[in-house]
């Protein structure tokens, strides 16, 4: 598995969340990934990034190439997810009012990530942090 890109994520910085998206997009276009798969990777990664922005102080996103797969990991030192199964349900949200007022936190984040990735692993420990690993088949 070879790392190709990495980004630091800053909590509560909604405006700059998404800058990584355009960098990833340009990179994927150049290495010849089809636009449909790029869109799925971007949607899932953006949601994962936003989860960090909305809940944690900081985090890291890393993108890897593994033969014919793209792997995106997003790791934070945030509050953690108490009940992952519940968080996977559409509409479930713990977002604060501040976050909801900005048009985020509708409870579609994790379901959206699941829908757009080919494989998803979530490890989380309350008060420690969360690690999301998304796998996309590109061939």
């Amino acid at each position: 598995m070879e790392k190709i890109l990495d980004f630091k994520i800053k909590g509560r910085d909604f405006i700059n969340a998404g800058e990584s998206t355009s960098k990833m997009k340009n990179y994927f276009k150049k290495i010849g990934i089809s636009s449909k798969i790029i869109k799925r990777i971007l949607v899932a990664s953006y949601e994962a990034e936003l989860n960090v922005v909305a809940h944690a102080d900081s985090g890291v996103m890393e993108i890897f190439v593994d033969e014919d797969k793209i792997v995106v990991t997003v790791e934070d030192e945030g509050p953690g997810i108490e009940d992952i199964d519940r968080a996977m349900q559409e509409g479930f949200s713990t977002a604060s009012d501040e976050v909801r007022e900005m048009g985020f936190g509708a409870g579609m984040g994790l379901p959206n990530i699941k829908r757009n990735s080919d494989d998803l692993e979530i490890e989380s420990e309350v008060n420690k942090g969360t690690r999301v690993k998304m796998v996309f088949n590109v061939s």
Binding site: E2, I4, Y27, K29, I31, G32, I33, S35, D68
Partner: peptide, 20 residues
């Protein structure tokens, strides 16, 4: 129809090498 500019290499791992 889309007409994207050719990727830098048709083989993805070669393309990643070239990006590096």
């Amino acid at each position: 129809k889309p007409r994207p500019v050719e990727p830098i290499d048709k083989n993805m791992s070669n393309a990643v090498k070239k990006m590096k």
